[in-house]
């Protein structure tokens, strides 16, 4: 009994023990190098394709701005959620953040996007404004006018049998001219994105 008390007293009167007990501090915290922080420029040239702006889930977080002789993406703090999608979506690797670029290279992953056109038949009044206003339609069939009917099958969408028929969705460039010209907001352009991985990687 008495020996154990002495043992305890000796143990707790050690300077080392007292110092660590009274001045306890956790180790200074360093941000690990793999932390996915706000994206920083790598120095590669931005081509202003806006893939980063289109994929960004946070409103107002990234803007591609024109400087005197070059384009540059700008990240707004207070808006950016550090998801790293802009880094992943950029085809030129203009930005870097944590291990996003390394992972993209090692796993041979990429993002593929296309546009999906949906027409709500209960709202559509078959005016043909979408088919007439579409700039791609104008290239494919210059004679397409007024009612939206077309003889060519090369157009994105046309009026056929009293309703809008979407023929070549893959030609859509996502300009949303049809959406802006639709009086009933019946046509919707949605950008679809899919993560892909090359086989064998």
């Amino acid at each position: 009994m008495s020996t154990s008390i002495i043992w305890y007293l000796r143990e707790f009167l050690r300077m080392e023990w007292l110092r660590t007990f009274l001045f306890a501090k956790t180790a200074p915290l360093v941000t690990p190098p793999y932390f996915k922080d706000y994206p920083l420029p790598t120095g590669n040239e931005c081509t202003a394709c806006y893939n980063c702006m289109m994929i960004c889930p946070a409103p107002g977080a990234i803007e591609v701005l024109r400087h005197t002789d070059h384009w540059k993406p700008m990240i707004h703090r207070g808006h950016c959620i550090r998801c790293g999608l802009c880094v992943e979506a950029c085809p030129e690797d203009v930005l870097w953040s944590g291990r996003v670029l390394d992972a993209k290279r090692n796993d041979a992953t990429d993002l593929r996007s296309w546009y999906r056109l949906t027409v709500d038949d209960t709202l559509c009044m078959r005016c043909g404004n979408c088919a007439v206003s579409c700039p791609v339609n104008k290239q494919a069939d210059p004679s397409l006018a007024s009612t939206g009917t077309a003889s060519s099958d090369e157009v994105i969408m046309k009026i056929e049998g009293g309703r809008v028929r979407v023929i070549h969705e893959e030609k859509c460039t996502g300009c949303k001219t049809c959406e802006n010209n639709c009086p009933n907001k019946a046509i919707r352009v949605a950008r679809m994105v899919e993560g892909i991985q090359e086989r064998g990687a």
Partner: peptide
């Protein structure tokens, strides 16, 4: 956080 500054992803 972002929310009190800008509304973050909810600011739509």
């Amino acid at each position: 956080g972002n929310c009190p500054i800008s509304g973050c992803v909810f600011n739509r």
